[in-house]
């Protein structure tokens, strides 16, 4: 999911930083000072999720938790994901510092969209609706993220269109796993701590 250094043109890098900058600024504005600790905890969970390997057929993949983080944090997903990606770039060299803007935009935008589109439905009393919305939030968050990664590549070099399409197709199994995991996680949180699904700015 991370774009590495060297792939993106300066115009794509600038667009990534512009979206990430606007999102982080808006997210920080929506985040009260007394909620920083809670957001940092969720950011740590997002950071650690990339280190959990889950079996997928003969291979394995790691969770991205874009959907659940979006449902829990709402608009504050932008600063939380920016921070987690900055730490991943510095500590493990995942992604990079120059592409941090594009990576934040391609992961935090789907997280916020998941919150805006499916947030209310996941809290619904209708269990079937909540289940479908939870799966869709996890599945579509990953697919939207893959779409944005492909978009950044195609924007940098139009000849990479087939590469972008392949990246999108490769993410389908991961998106299904993410959808199922989000569904189970939402059901767990509905029972254990329903307030968490209201978004951190409403807690």
């Amino acid at each position: 999911m991370h774009i590495s250094e060297g792939f993106l043109s300066p115009s794509a890098l600038a667009a990534g930083w512009a979206i990430a900058g606007a999102g982080v600024a808006w997210g920080l504005k929506k985040m009260d000072s007394d909620r920083i600790v809670r957001v940092s905890m969720a950011s740590s969970v997002f950071f650690l999720a990339s280190l959990i390997n889950v079996k997928l057929g003969p291979s394995s993949t790691h969770l991205s938790l874009i959907g659940p983080i979006g449902l829990i944090l709402g608009w504050t997903s932008f600063p939380a994901i920016f921070t987690a990606l900055l730490l991943q770039a510095v500590l493990f060299q995942f992604g990079g510092l120059l592409v941090l803007g594009a990576n934040t935009a391609s992961m935090a935008t789907p997280a916020v969209l998941a919150y805006l589109v499916f947030g209310a439905a996941t809290r619904s009393r209708n269990l079937r609706l909540a289940s479908v919305a939870s799966f869709a939030a996890g599945f579509l968050a990953v697919m939207t993220s893959a779409l944005l990664v492909g978009l950044w590549l195609a924007l940098s070099d139009p000849d990479m269109m087939l590469t972008a399409k392949t990246i999108f197709a490769v993410h389908v199994p991961l998106a299904v796993v993410e959808g199922v995991t989000t569904l189970f996680m939402t059901m767990f949180l509905r029972r254990a701590f329903p307030d968490m699904l209201k978004g951190v700015d409403r807690l």
């Binding site: 969970v45 829990i72 569904l183 701590f193 968490m196």
Partner: peptide, 13 residues
């Protein structure tokens, strides 16, 4: 795994 991450989130909260 979902319950494990969910439990971590609740504990972290």
């Amino acid at each position: 795994y979902a319950c494990m991450v969910g439990t971590t989130l609740v504990h972290s909260s």
